[in-house]
């Protein structure tokens, strides 16, 4: 493995594998108490409170234009740090850590269609599948 390999958290969303640099991930937890925030963007499931801070919980399925799915035991809230902000991402499941070397990541193909294309920073090919590297900044940008 190359020396400049970075550890990523792998998660699953609507049948696709995504990765976030693990250095951006504060923690992962089961989805429990989320308080709906009225008049917030539709993809904001609500707020959770962690360490005294109110953290928005973004339903990533809805953010990417997929159907909202019922939460299951596998559903996870991944709390990511973006600058001084903390944002929770609700994903179908998240289990693995993987190391991906920088050379293995290619820029996203121009033709990558659909909403999710805007939030992908690159594509890595693992042995058996493609992994989309998430652009966290794009996802949590309220204006986008």
């Amino acid at each position: 493995m190359a020396a400049d390999a970075t550890t990523y958290v792998l998660f699953e969303l609507a049948g696709t594998a995504y990765a976030i640099p693990s250095s951006d991930v504060q923690r992962m937890e089961m989805v429990e108490e989320i308080t709906p925030v009225p008049n917030a963007p539709a993809y904001v499931e609500g707020g959770v409170i962690t360490r005294g801070k109110v953290v928005p919980a973004v339903n990533l399925r809805m953010r990417f234009g997929f159907e909202r799915a019922e939460f299951t035991l596998a559903t996870r809230l991944i709390v990511v740090a973006q600058g001084s902000r903390l944002v929770g991402l609700i994903v179908d499941s998240a289990r693995e850590f993987v190391k991906i070397s920088a050379e293995a990541i290619q820029p996203p193909p121009e033709a990558l269609a659909g909403t999710s294309g805007r939030y992908v920073r690159g594509v890595a090919s693992a042995t058996d599948r493609l992994i989309l590297i998430l652009d966290v900044a794009g996802v949590v940008d309220a204006a986008a």
Partner: peptide, 29 residues
């Protein structure tokens, strides 16, 4: 209650001034 700010733009909506906890682990707006 202890007032926590709603500092993240994704939860900053008009009509809400903050959030608090009441011991149940979820925020009360």
């Amino acid at each position: 209650v202890v007032v926590r700010p709603l500092s993240d733009p994704l939860v900053q909506v008009p009509g809400l001034g903050g959030a608090t906890e009441m011991g149940e682990g979820r925020p009360i707006l």
